[in-house]
Design a protein around this nucleic acid. Structure first.
Lengths: 213, 213
DNA sequence: AACATCAAATGACTAACAGTCAGTAAATAA
DNA sequence: TTATTTACTGACTGTTAGTCATTTGATGTT
C-alpha cells in the first residue's frame, strides 16, 4: 500500500509550494520586511503549518539560498560544456556568474546576503548546511577546471589549483558585487558599462592565469 | 556666553559614548541579537534617550560602519606613506586591507555586512550616507594611486584607472571575504595559511598591473 | 457503516523587541 | 526666586517570530 510514499511526495510538494510563496514575499517586500504571516497567507496556509515544514524564518531563507545555489551551479555546469580547455572553462564560469547576477538578481542577492552572514548557523539549520555544501560543490567545479587547465597547459603550471580556485571565486564575487553598487546621493550605478567592466576583469585575470607568453 | 558651544560639545560626546556602548553590545551579542534596551543599559541611559541621538537601531549600526570606514581609510593612508611608486602603493593598500580584516575583525565584519545590504537606505539615514561617502573616498584614494602608478610607469598604461581601481577594490574585498569563510560540518577555515593566500593574490594581481616584462 | 487511529493543519496565545510620547528633572536665564 | 528651555525618562503600543492545545480529515479495522 503506497500511502506512505504518496504522503511523502505530497509533503515534499507542500514544502516546495511554501518556498515558492516565501520567494514571492521575500522578493516583493525585502527579506527583513517579509513576515511569516504574509508568507502563510500567500501559501494559503496557517502560520503554524509553516513551522511544521520549516524551523524558522531563517531556515526558510536558507532554503531559498539553496535553490539559488542550485541554479548557479547549474549555470556553471552548462557554461563549461563544449569548451576546449581549462582556461576557457574557467572564463566561462566567470561569465556564467555575471549572467546569473544579471538574469536572476533576486537569487544573486540572496547568495550575496548569505555570504555576508556570520559563520555557521549550520549547527542547527539543515538548510543552511545544505546551502553551504552547495557552495563547496560549486567551488569544487571551478577547481576541477583549473586543474584541467594546468594539465592541458592553458593555465600556468606554477599555480596551486586549490588556492587559485578559491581566489578566483572570491575575486569574481567581489567584482560582481562592487559592479552592482550605487553611489550615495545620486543613486547612479558605480559602473555604467557593466559588460566592459566584466570584460576588463576577465582580461586582467587572464594575465594571472594564462600560460602563453 | 559659550553655553551653546559647550552644550554642542557635550552632545557630541554623549553621541560618541552611545556609539561606544552600541559597539560593545553589537560585538558581544551579534548585530541581530543586540537590543536597544541592552545598549541603553550599557550606556547608562534610558532607551528613550538613545532615540534622541539616533533615529533607529539601523542608524546606530551605520554610525559604527562610519567609524569602521574611517579606521580603514586611515590605515590605507598610513600604508602608502614612503612608498616609492604607484604600484607599491596599490599593493600596500591591499596589504592594509588584509591587516584591517585581521586586526579589527569586528569592524571588518560590520563593513562586510553593510556592503551586502540593499542599495541605499541613504534616503532617510544620515549615517548611512556618511558611511557610503567614506567608501567613495577610500576608493578615490586607491584610484589616485593607480593613476600615480600609470604616470610613473610602474603600472601598465593601457589600464583605465577608474575601472581598474574599482576592480581592485572589489577583488580585494571578495578575496578577503572568502579567505575568512569556514567549511560546513567541520567549521575549519577554508584557507589555512592566510598569509600565503593573500601573497598569492598580490602576485596574481601583479601580473595584471605590472608594467615590466 | 460505525469506530479507532494517526497525521496534518489551525489560530489564538506568548514573549520579545523597536519605537513613541506624555511627563519629570535639571540646567540656564530672567 | 521664578520662568523657560533643554535633556532625559520609562511605561506604553504595535508588530512579529514562534508555540501548542485543539480540531479536521484521511486511512485502516471490525
Amino acid at each position: 500500500m503506497g500511502t506512505t510514499e504518496r504522503r511523502e511526495r505530497e509533503k515534499e510538494q507542500r514544502r516546495n509550494e511554501i518556498i515558492n510563496s516565501a520567494e514571492k514575499v521575500f522578493f516583493m517586500k525585502g527579506i527583513e520586511n517579509a513576515t511569516m504571516d504574509e508568507i502563510a497567507e500567500e501559501a494559503e496556509l496557517s502560520k503554524g503549518t509553516l513551522y511544521l515544514y520549516f524551523k524558522s524564518k531563517e531556515e526558510l531563507f536558507h532554503a531559498i539560498c539553496s535553490r539559488a545555489g542550485k541554479k548557479l551551479l547549474g549555470m556553471f555546469e552548462e557554461s563549461i560544456k563544449y569548451k576546449k580547455n581549462g582556461l576557457l572553462k574557467v572564463k566561462s564560469i566567470g561569465q556564467a556568474f555575471y549572467d546569473f547576477s544579471q538574469g536572476y538578481p533576486e537569487y544573486y542577492d540572496v547568495i550575496k546576503r548569505a555570504d555576508s552572514m556570520k559563520i555557521c548557523d549550520c549547527e542547527n539549520s539543515h538548510e543552511a548546511k545544505k546551502a553551504k555544501e552547495q557552495g563547496e560543490e560549486t567551488l569544487g567545479l571551478l577547481k576541477k577546471c583549473v586543474i584541467e587547465g594546468i594539465n592541458d597547459r592553458s593555465i600556468r603550471s606554477e599555480l596551486d589549483p586549490e588556492i587559485t580556485s578559491i581566489m578566483l571565486y572570491g575575486m569574481s564575487k567581489g567584482v560582481i558585487q562592487i559592479m552592482n553598487e550605487v553611489m550615495p546621493e545620486t543613486g547612479m550605478p558605480l559602473i555604467q558599462d557593466k559588460k566592459l567592466f566584466i570584460e576588463s576583469f576577465f582580461e586582467f585575470a587572464g594575465y594571472g592565469l594564462n600560460n602563453q607568453k
